[in-house]
Amino acid sequence: MNLFRLTGDMMHLFSILVILLKIRATKSCRGISLKTQELYALVFVCRYLDLLYSFVSVYNSVMKVTFLATAFSIIRYMRYDKVVRQTYDREQDTFRYGFLVAPCFVLALLINHKFTLTEVLWTFSIYLEAVAILPQLVLMQRTQNIDNLTAHYVALLGGYRALYIVNWVYRYFTERHYKQWIVWISGLIQTAIYADFFYFYTIAWKSNKRLQLPA
């Protein structure tokens, strides 16, 4: 465990806590894409199946369980909470996520380390995570009224994967045999998807204004 990886994980954790805080404190999920949240839940379920058959560390297990629990908690609020669900931007959040899930699954069947059920699902989760933010980015571009918590949420999520890239570089040079092309290329694509967002996020932050994405 290095500092880049740990900071990345903490950003990931905080991003989720920011959303939960927003939902619980304001009783509103305005600006949050349920599609993205559901994709992340699917990502976590497919990736953390190994909770059932392998153990890495207490840290690892606690984080995995936390990610799973919070993902489903957010979905529960957005779908079923009497107050919160009325604030969901149903008409705007129309991204057809089948167009993300299907290609990622086919790609996982074709490009993987080992053709076994858990390995293919794990690979699928890596590919899907890379693009899972897209419905959220599209929603933000549509609504044009992005509150600070939502902006910070996306920034933390983008920062998490960017720090993982630094962590991979670090590990490549400090650990023998540390090579993982599937994760690296997916992670690079995932981070690149945020580039545009970060450009406008930085501008808004510097000028102390509310984030606005061009239509």
């Binding site: 990886r5 990931h12 890495v56 560390s57 984080m63 380390h113 794990w122 994760v183």
Partner: peptide, 10 residues
């Protein structure tokens, strides 16, 4: 895990 420790990441 022996496989380059990739699954110790989240």
């Amino acid at each position: 895990l022996s496989k380059s420790g990739r699954k110790d990441e989240l």
